[in-house]
Nucleic acid binder design. Sequence first.
RNA 1: GGGGCGGUAGCUCAGCCGGUUAGAGCAGGGGACUCAUAAUCCCUGGGUCGCGGGUUCGAGUCCCGCCCGCCCUACCA
Length: 593
Amino acid sequence: MSQHILTAVAWPYANGPRHIGHVSGFGVPSDIFSRYQRMAGNKVLMVSGTDEHGTPIQVQADKEGLTARELADRYNRVIAEDLRALGLSYDLFTRTTTGNHYAVAQEIFKGLHANGYIFPKTTMGAISPSTGRTLPDRYIEGTCPICGFDGARGDQCDNCGNQLDPVQLINPVSRINGEKPVFVETEHFMLDLPAFAEVLATWLRSKQGDWRPNVLKFALNLLGDLQPRAITRDLDWGVPIPLDGWRDQPNKRLYVWFDAVIGYLSASIEWARRSGDPEAWRRWWQNPDARSYYFMGKDNIVFHAEIWPALLLGYNGQGASDGTPGALGALNLPSEVVSSEFLTMEGRKFSSSRQVVIYVRDFLSRYDADALRYYIAVAGPESQDTDFTWSEFLNRNNGELVAAWGNLVNRSISMAAKNFGAVPEGRDLTDADRALLERSRAAFPVVGAELARSRFKNATTEAFDVIREANRYLADQEPWKIKDDPERVGSILHVALQVVDDAKTLLTPVLPSSSNKIHAMLGGTGVWSGMPEVREVDEEGGRSYPIITGSYEGQARWESVPIRPGVPLSPPTPLFTKLDPKIVKEELSRLGE
RNA sequence: GGGGCGGUAGCUCAGCCGGUUAGAGCAGGGGACUCAUAAUCCCUGGGUCGCGGGUUCGAGUCCCGCCCGCCCUACCA
């Protein structure tokens, strides 16, 4: 039974290049999941883009001597290229600075406003006197009024841990340029989160047993203290507020988190338009049987398990004060929020400023995408923080990818090519032959179930058990010792090649590039598993920008496909690169401190 | 301050609602084999499951307290 599945991938923030910690949280997991779902016959729509508004972009742009848009243009391109190189199969990876996104974000705002879930309020806010822009709490520091600590931030003192209000700070200064912030009355729109407390609670409780417990517990806990939350900012970089009297104010914009989560919807709509069927997005957003999976790092749980559902409920008119769906119609809430924990780097937190980092681009300039994908799948921060170390990367690559899997492929094809020059027949199968074939066939439902639950570690381990079994089988059968029975040798190699082909299928979601190579080695033609491409597109009447898209219609299906005897085989070339142990030292010397 | 996650063999980690002698991979030690990127296969070592209480016939697995690490606290995934 084919289902519509929306894979909603967290939007990387375009204030710099992304490192491997970022892609271990949202990127690789969402792609493994989507590739599996497509192979299982479901209709997947995988969307994302770069998140390009907000103060941090503005700050970084000032630092680099660029406008916010120029900075966003630069890193949008860098990030899109990196994610493509990782093989992430987005149906559309776009950005938040498109006319379409502006229109959709404004439509959601208007819908919420019409239903009474947004109201204006005058508050005290910190403003940078030189720019007139909002100075977020975190960008203000000063002396803590409680403990006297000097480097307290506007929202919290790192020394005594107390929560602060920037107005309380003694001698507050801007961390951006050292000037003294001014506190002024400013009017902003607030989202009435308390109006959703009840319906959110009901909704979240219905997910009990379904979601990962850490996500659910965290989200339920937040419900106890929901406060109205400002969704606009004093800033000139962002989506204008679509109401009379506000639209033309140069210094009032939607707050970046508000517009960013709407990206899932706007990107789906943009994808539909580009696909030639502008209404197609509705099959993923309004069909009650459609499922939606949101992938992110744990710091984003609050936006996806609390705020985004609240926005959708409000737009649908399903909060405490009811209402009617907006012009787009009622929209589906998330089926599941899949959150990863964090990756650390050699025992430390990733930090660009301290050089405790490896950017995706640098990584891929020296190592294969599949090597990184494998590491993340098998040792990533799936249910708890995990540490990336170069020595473990080396061990996993050389010991598992190269020695166990690559070697099985290589020895099987090599022997078959040398002895037969083609896929041999499997005749008079023995119990051992049948047992191995059965073992690999039986892995499909098991591995599939783990992938569907986003349990990538279990799935990969299970697939590798089949590989170990196959290596054991060859050691037991010793086809290289059989000199007088070529038919038996052929049967053994037939079985080995069948299992290689099965394992290739099982590993396609994790290792799409190498699986494509094996497909070709075994005489397959055409595309096995589609790979993404970066394409330059125009906005109607506007500038051009890169998107990631692709056709992922390949032949890959989640099932064992019988190999065809007689298909010619050539001597294989190694699938994976064995790494020199000295890279560990080299890479460590690149890290700061 | 509030909240979340974790502390299991040298290393990285599995161990859902409590149940017989606590597991895997890697590393280490011994052996076999040579088809394969010296890869593979077999055997092997043994950790008071952070600490202290409690519940129970029985706790790594539930409850309480404490210690340590990481994270979130409204945008650094």
